[in-house]
């Protein structure tokens, strides 16, 4: 009986101490997801022998539609990528062809980075896929964060478990860890240089790293971000790839 009361108290206590995890996720979505978004940035790929910088501009609407165009270096310039729900097309100006990526080609890395095309395809809302709990607090980069532990509630998900560190005030995730079912850490995403864009906070530097591989991972740096601007529907069509 005593044990039960203790348990009850501790549950209530944690409940009191930590906010509702779904609320946190909602607030994160509110902050991060915009109906429309135009983003310019660069990707820094740290290779064994060299470091490459690739700049790009991407347009997105919601989470199902996105269009990315690579700007530099010269050999990547004009390469465009269109994602509509589960489909991914790539346009190459060198070949002037649109090729749909499927099967094993999705396992290829994006521009030699630690991220695969497949990683880019996951676009369901976290709330729909994971059960979240707040497991504690931690300071990351001088910001107080909630630690959210996410466990998959559906079966067909690439990462069974995730840990997210969310800024308690700005509702920006500052760190994400993606785990295998066994609990083995597979990938780590570190977000930093959070800046204010209108009424939103956005990280402008993201480091994405496959922890099983040697190396420093890949940096994504956002140089320009426009939120809530109007994007022509035409952008999200295959025809736009060739233009």
């Amino acid at each position: 009986m005593n044990a039960f009361i203790l348990l009850l108290i501790s549950v209530l206590w944690t409940g009191l101490k930590f906010p509702d995890p779904n609320m946190i996720l909602d607030r994160v979505d509110q902050n991060m997801l915009s109906t429309t978004k135009i983003l310019e940035g660069r990707m820094i790929v740290y290779g064994k022998r060299n470091t490459r910088i690739i700049t790009f501009r991407s347009y997105s609407e919601g989470i199902h539609k996105s269009f990315t165009e690579y700007l530099t270096p010269a050999r990547e310039a004009g390469t465009k990528m269109l994602k509509l729900k589960d489909n991914l097309w790539i346009y190459s100006p060198a070949a002037d062809r649109i090729i749909q990526l499927s099967g094993h080609m999705l396992k290829q890395s994006v521009m030699g980075s630690d991220m695969s095309y497949e990683d880019m395809m996951e676009d369901r809302k976290m709330k729909d896929v994971y059960d979240a709990t707040v497991t504690g607090e931690e300071t990351v980069d001088g910001r107080k964060c909630w630690i959210l532990e996410l466990n998959a509630k559906v079966e067909d998900v690439a990462y069974e478990k995730m840990k997210i560190w969310v800024d308690q005030l700005r509702y920006v995730p500052l760190r994400e860890e993606l785990y295998a079912k066994s609990g083995q850490l597979l990938k780590r995403v570190v977000m930093s240089d959070v800046k204010r864009f209108g009424d939103r906070w956005y990280p402008t530097k993201i480091n994405y790293k496959d922890v099983l591989k040697n190396g420093k991972g890949t940096d994504f740096i956002i140089t320009r971000l426009q939120l809530g601007v109007k994007i022509d529907e035409y952008i999200f069509t295959k025809a736009a790839l060739k233009k």
Binding site: V45, G47, I90, S92, A94, A95, R97, I99, M105, Q108
Partner: peptide, 16 residues
């Protein structure tokens, strides 16, 4: 034909 492969740095590459 179009050749599809990976560059030395791992980018997808296409060439007619």
């Amino acid at each position: 034909v179009t050749f599809i492969g990976s560059t030395m740095d791992g980018s997808l590459t296409f060439q007619n």
